[in-house]
Design a protein around this nucleic acid. Structure first.
Lengths: 192, 192
DNA sequence: CCATTAAATTGACCATGGTCATTTAATAAT
DNA sequence: ATTATTAAATGACCATGGTCAATTTAATGG
């Protein structure tokens, strides 16, 4: 007989997430230790892994959740009408995604789902981001020779590239803003 | 007195690399274990870490070396004159970079150096790739409204995006080739 | 209310990358 | 040659993520 999920289960899971969030608040993402989480949540280590496939799965949920809330904001604004406005709109997302090298790497690794069954929060937000940006592009004076879908995917590629390069000591003289501007000008409004 | 590097040192290092290469040949990159490498090389574990900062540093050297050899080939060919030719030229590189998810992730993570002092093989090859592609672009009928540098960086962004998306179960219906084509057409020869 | 079954929890244990005080070997100084 | 000095190698040990057989707790049926 299909037994329903126990209240206990949800409580335990909530306690684990809450403990993790609190520790992240204190010390950031990278230094989070499973050991500390279970200690703070008052559970055994094995319980953690009964609730999350691995440590990354917890991170996917927490980080994915943050991104999703940032996308809620993006979904509400008016479509940016030029490149500087577009960049400005995307900045909060960029700032969070690059708040730690560890966070960016994890986001990148989880931006695509390895299998259909394991589409996580982060992978979902990447799809949602494309949709939102597509919506913008339908109401903005950018190139019309290619689909808004392709245009949005290209923007995502440049966004990721700008953030990745920003972590590189060889190239981090330019801010993400300044690096992104020429890319997007060339992509969205080519002058040929 | 500046003491020169002992022959012994070079030999040990060479043995470690040779052992790793052999094991990778057998079982691929991901399943390589430091324990196995030192066993095969006949050294203690500590010796490994006296020669390489960590396991990733060895991977950076081996993977970076492979990429560099592929770039040697790319440096010699004639500049591709259209998008399909360009994609074809880049395919060997793509194939190696995506031979394992683990390899691609490591490449991505090391494509930028965290600090000037730690520029590794992979980061170096990324710079070299830009240079080679820039050389191509100077001799090909693509858009001229932006610098070859920017154009080459954009190509790199699309290349990485196409490879990343290829690992995603949601989007891997298209081959890297087919995914890259519309991107590069739109980037290199915009029709506005 | 007890017996049965399934879900949830536990913690000892494992796998693996990485550290470091100690030992051994090579080179330079006398 | 002998000693002093520096480089290289060693392996016991640690840190941390992850596993799993055993136990406890909750739901279900008679």
């Amino acid at each position: 007989m299909a037994r329903q999920i126990q209240k206990r289960t949800l409580e335990t899971r909530a306690r684990l997430v809450a403990a993790a969030e609190a520790l992240i608040e204190q010390n950031g993402f990278e230094s989070l230790r499973v050991e500390e989480v279970v200690l703070k949540a008052g559970t055994a280590k094995g319980t953690f892994f009964a609730h999350f496939k691995d440590k990354d799965a917890l991170m996917d949920q927490i980080i994915g959740g943050r991104i999703d809330r940032l996308l809620d904001d993006l979904a509400e604004i008016q479509a940016p009408q030029n490149v500087p406005e577009t960049i400005e709109a995307l900045m909060p997302l960029c700032e969070f995604m690059t708040c730690e090298r560890y966070v960016f790497d994890l986001i990148y690794r989880y931006s695509g789902a390895a299998a259909i069954e394991e589409i996580g929060m982060i992978a979902t937000t990447f799809g949602r981001q494309i949709e939102i940006v597509e919506g913008w592009l339908g109401n903005a004076p950018f190139r019309k020779d290619i689909s808004t879908g392709l245009l949005a995917e290209g923007m995502q590629a440049f966004l990721m590239q700008a953030m990745a390069v920003n972590f590189c000591a060889l190239h981090n003289a330019l801010s993400i803003r300044d690096r992104l501007a020429p890319y997007l000008e060339a992509w969205l409004t080519p002058k040929v």
